[in-house]
Design a protein around this nucleic acid. Structure first.
Ligand SMILES: [Zn+2]
Length: 362
DNA sequence: CGAGTTTGACCAGCGC
DNA sequence: GCGCTGGTCAAACTCG
């Protein structure tokens, strides 16, 4: 009887695992499906702003390790997922070495080899349980792997970019501003209706929104140093999160780059920085030296230079244009295009991390 | 005093 | 219309 029971148990176990794997495969398939359909399909499915973050297919990670000599090794965007841009960059103080991992292009990015694959959809929507669970798992795996490697993980940054995603969010702050200004100029509250008409018209013609890029950075400090100067213009409580979201604007004149910074409520060790638009000016040079002079953070293991290294900066037009193509393109030329893109990866990375590693300040 | 932050008010969009 | 939410404004405030 015991044997029978054991058999029964085994069968149950088998059924369970079978279902589990079936479920996994199904989800995998679904994600592939979305990838094949490209961004637009997702935009139709996803509706609101938070979900929009799921659509950012440009995923990569930066891992920064500190070895005994305090030499900085920067592990830059590593590939993941069929629809992601793929590059693995290891950089030291001496020089740069661009490593490509083409095999990762067609890798599913799921399970299998957690150390080499990373598929990250920054999802902060509690409604999307699958994504959340998955992301949480991957990040945990990553930490494990890194930790077992004996390296000190200072910071981990994942990047996800979205091209113009108009479906979710409307760029209305300009019109709102102008409305307010007009009101002030007139000195009258009269004819608000006409203004509203103007406003809506303006909104219609200004349909396309600025591209956004989200960076997920593992850090303990809220405001990551990225070389640019920012003025905080707002702070809001984030729904379902104990952590607030801060709104920053680039202080340079005529540069309307904005960024939002918030700590993930799912993984409080992670900070999400979302950049909007691009700088039309070089990085201000003034305060760099001061930042390198000494640590000002409370964390022993995170001197400021590390934060700079691991801090996402901005992105170039080129990047954003390229990403969606890479993501949508799944035909036979895909690999070739990827390889071509790899040729430009260095430029791209230079663009994203302009000052610290890839370029001397002017 | 200038530059940046804080913070409550305000506004638009959206779902109901 | 109403309430909720994300995003912005701007007066007051802080800091060097
Ligand atoms: Zn700027």
């Amino acid at each position: 009887r015991n044997v029978d029971r054991l058999k029964n148990h085994k069968r149950k176990k088998f059924v369970f695992f079978y279902f589990f794997h079936l479920l996994q495969a199904l989800l995998l398939y679904l994600l592939f499906f979305f990838d094949f359909l490209g961004f637009e399909s997702l935009f139709f499915i996803m509706s609101n702003e938070t979900k929009d973050l799921n659509n950012y297919h440009y995923t990569s990670s930066y891992n920064h390790y500190n070895n005994i000599n305090n030499q900085n090794i920067l592990n830059l965007p590593y590939v993941s997922g069929p629809s992601t841009y793929n590059a693995n960059m290891i950089s030291s103080q001496i020089g740069y070495d661009l490593q490509l991992s083409p095999q990762g292009v067609y890798e599913s990015g799921f399970e299998l080899s957690p150390s080499s694959t990373e598929f990250f959809n920054p999802s902060f929507d509690q409604q999307n349980d699958f994504h959340n669970a998955f992301n949480y798992n991957t990040s945990n795996k990553r930490q494990e792997v890194v930790g077992s490697g004996g390296a000190i993980i200072e910071s981990e940054t994942r990047v996800s970019a979205s091209p113009s995603s108009e479906a979710d969010h409307h760029h209305d702050e300009d019109s709102g501003k102008s409305l307010r200004k007009r009101e002030a100029d007139d000195g009258g509250k009269y004819d608000q209706r006409a203004q509203k008409v103007v406003k809506t018209k303006k909104k219609e013609e200004k349909k396309q929104r600025e591209p956004r890029v989200s960076f997920v950075t593992k850090t303990e400090v809220e405001h990551l140093e990225d070389g640019y100067r920012w003025r905080k213009y707002g702070q809001k409580a984030v729904k379902n999160s104990p952590y607030p979201r801060s709104y920053y604007r680039c202080t340079t004149q005529k540069c309307n780059v904005k960024k939002r910074v918030e700590r993930s409520y799912q993984d409080p060790t992670v900070v999400i920085t979302t950049y909007e638009s691009q700088h039309n000016h070089p990085i201000p040079t003034s305060r760099r030296s001061a930042l390198f002079s000494g640590p000002t953070t409370s964390n022993y293991n995170s001197p400021v230079s590390d934060l700079i290294i691991n801090t996402p900066r901005s992105f170039s037009n080129d990047d954003l244009l390229r990403v969606p193509y890479a993501a949508v393109n799944v035909n036979a030329n895909y690999q070739q295009q990827q390889n071509q893109e790899f040729q430009n990866d260095y430029e791209l990375l230079k663009d994203m991390f302009p000052s610290v590693f890839f370029k001397q300040e002017p």
